[in-house]
Design a protein around this nucleic acid. Structure first.
Length: 402
RNA sequence: GUGAGUGUAGCUCAGCCCGGUUAGAGCACCAGGUUGUGGCCCUGGGGGCCGGGGGUUCAAAUCCCCUCACUCACCCCA
């Protein structure tokens, strides 16, 4: 039996690797223009970093983490998400002295789950985090960056936003919600009955129709927000309108990770199975991990989910230099000149018909034929493979035209 | 973790229900037709433990059991 990549992983090559590269370069370009700086964090961290920040009751921590011990028994985990490591790194390296501070990352994440369409066990995220900005401008910036990226990728997105309150006001809402649910537990699914105990907000986004029915008359968070959260959320909404970013309010949108508070958002693109980007505020996280109290917000884009929707980058025109049976050295010299002019060149020594066949099947734009006849005349024949036209130039004319 | 489907040539699949010569097709690949012109056409060729193991049978790609893998959905998430 031949080796296959391990379950939930895949090899990325050909057009897919072009798509991947295009997404990453657009992401880098946009984020750099907002003055974010790249940060690379380890691929694994102390297990407790994730357990404490993501939340013990989440599926990620309960059953999706790649946990292992190193040889000295340290409990470690392959990172299942990017935010906690960035926050940890910012604290470890004292990067939050001068605020605001902005970081971005691109990398692979690991979650042990059943693989399916565009959901792998090793997947890639590109994310950005803003530290030290309490006002709505940070939330707006995160959303604007996503908007720009999807625009440049030529993807039509829709945006959903919500607020889930802060440490001050969420408890009151959670209590109201629990009171509401407790009388109706019998009608809810078993998952929801468990969520009621562990994380009542999550009952809101249960997909089961019977649960949704019951929850449709649940208390609304808007009635429980503290003045600050109310203000912040309305600032964001009006800023979005000013920036002409369409959004819909989704009161049932709650994020799966415990550290979120305030405004949360998700981007959808038609054709993708689920959200392609998501983010929100996590004002308490830096302090929770031992730093000073620093408000923060960020987002991550699921590269794997965007990949099938974007076209591969336009490739630059490639040249194949064919020696057609003569000494290959001459063809190699010609190729060097083409490369020196900044264009990709490949040398083929096969007989002409085979080389041309190879060239057209591999997507070369031009064949530069340097056979016996050309060698005698100090010329080259340049054939446009897509159009089938061919012209002979002196070598100097050809090099000058590059 | 739950449910359904699929594993036959490099790829897409037929054959399986109803067991019976040497397991097929298209595409791709290689060679030749074409010793300096690719795509089109023609001819020929290489390729397969029919996912793996066990069972039933005179006989298994085909029927039964187990196992592994993949796909899709649920759950959850980016």
């Amino acid at each position: 039996m031949k080796y296959q990549p391990p379950r939930g992983t895949r090899d990325i090559f050909g057009d897919d690797v072009c798509r991947f590269g295009r997404i990453v370069s657009i992401f880098r370009d946009v984020v750099a223009r907002y003055c974010f700086e790249e940060i690379k964090t380890p691929i694994f961290e102390d297990t407790s970093l994730f357990e404490r920040t993501i939340g013990k009751e989440t599926d990620i921590v309960k059953k999706q983490m790649y946990n292992f011990e190193d040889k000295s028994g340290r409990p470690l985990t392959l990172r299942p998400e990017g935010t906690a490591p960035v926050v940890r790194a910012a604290i470890s390296n004292n990067l939050l002295e001068k605020l605001p501070a902005k970081f971005f990352y691109i990398g692979e994440m690991f979650r042990y789950e059943r693989p399916q369409k565009d959901r792998k066990r090793q997947f890639y995220q590109a994310g950005a985090e803003i530290f030290g900005e309490k006002s709505a401008s940070a939330d707006l910036e995160a959303i604007k960056i996503c908007r720009e990226i999807f625009d440049k990728l030529e993807l039509k997105f829709s945006l959903e936003i919500n607020t889930i309150g802060c440490q001050k006001c969420r408890p009151a809402y959670e209590k109201a919600l629990k009171d509401f649910i407790s009388g109706r537990l019998d009608g809810l699914c078993s998952d929801c009955r468990e969520r009621y105990e562990t994380n009542p907000l999550r009952v809101l986004d249960c997909k089961k129709e019977s649960c949704r029915q019951i929850l449709s008359s649940a208390p609304a968070i808007d009635d429980y927000l503290c003045p600050e959260c109310r203000r912040n959320f309305s600032d964001i909404k009006s800023a979005l309108s000013e920036s002409r970013i369409n959004f819909t309010r989704n009161e049932k949108l709650v994020r799966g990770l415990d550290y979120y508070n305030g405004c949360v958002f998700e981007f959808y693109v038609s054709g993708a199975r689920d959200a392609v980007a998501a983010g929100g505020r996590y004002d308490g996280l830096v302090e929770f991990l031992g730093g000073r109290p620093v408000p923060a917000c960020g987002f991550a884009i699921g590269i794997d989910r965007v990949m099938p929707l974007v076209s591969p980058v336009g490739k630059t025109d490639k040249y194949i230099v064919i020696s057609a049976g003569t000494e290959k050295r001459e063809a190699e010299k010609i190729a060097e000149r083409i490369r020196a002019a900044g264009k990709p060149a490949f040398v083929a020594g096969k007989k002409l018909s085979a080389a041309l066949k190879f060239a057209s099947s591999r997507g070369f734009k031009y064949a530069v034929i340097a056979g016996e006849e050309e060698l005698r005349e100090n010329s080259v024949s340049v054939r446009n493979l897509s159009e089938g036209r061919q012209e002979k130039f002196s070598k100097e004319d050809f090099f000058n035209s590059l």
